[in-house]
Amino acid sequence: MASSFKTRAKLEKNHFGYIFIAPFFITYFVFQIIPLINTFYYSLTDIKAWYVNPEMNYKFVGFDMFKMVLTEDAFKRAFVNTPVMWIMGFIPQLLIALLLASWFTNEKIRVKGQGFFKVVFYMPNIMTATTIGLLFLAFIRPNGFIHNFAIAVGYLKNPQMPFVSGWFGRGVVAFINFWMWYGQTMIVLIAGIMGINPSFFEAASIDGASGWQSFWRITLPLIRPIMTYSLVTSLIGGFQMFDVPNMMGNGDNAALFRFDIQTIVMYIKGIATEGSNSIGKACAASVFLFLITAVCSSVLFYLTSDRAEAKAKRLEKKRAKEAALQEGGDL
């Protein structure tokens, strides 16, 4: 009796917390959950954008829009381009970030001017993607310096010809993404490494471990949660890649490899805001994007989570439960 009273008092004390976290959940509900549900709903209709369809007329078309999306070359292309460009950018991004992070945190090296380098590496992330996209577009266009360089070294035989290779275009987009984000990843990883108890490194070095060994045996395993975080957020961001490739391969800036750098979000945006503004079809494509992202994130999460540890935890819980049951039985 006495104990239950105690519990209630505790709860009453805590419920102010709900008020403090409410704004987030309300915003999240209004601006994320409702649109998310609406997207699923409208993906089954042929609705047009409100500004070409002020009466909001629509009819249900079942899975027609999904079928249409799946059969389109543009979707298949975007579905390949997006992860390819993400992987091309993310692998160097993670490697360089990891390397820099371990250098900056290494007590033996003690890099001088760390603050300066951190700022410099982080800086591309501050610039807007639009600016960077336009800048690189000017570089690779005929008369741009990269184009002129390619002619000078003989990569381009005909100076009138622009870069047409799709892989070149993807490479440029991947490079920009790498260049914009490795600083950010580096900062996150540094934070992760700093969180490791220094006595581990000390103990390792006393036992005669080399820098390489302590990196592989201590740093990497212990920053795995942070790595997972980087990987999953980057994956989600990667699937939503839009600004840089859109700047380089759309509208007046239509570079020649526009088909090879079209991403899923560019495809969705094109359907929703151009032509006949078919929001229904854009929603169907968005549902695919949602599913793909959800599946890939879960797979990544599963692959990178420490399964052995989770298993041990589960086992422990089970044992504790059994023990508790046994105790209850004894009573």
Binding site: E72, A74, F75, S276
Partner: peptide
């Protein structure tokens, strides 16, 4: 045709 059909499903 193909690219236009993407944006004009009708």
């Amino acid at each position: 045709y193909k690219e236009s059909k993407v944006k004009i499903p009708e």
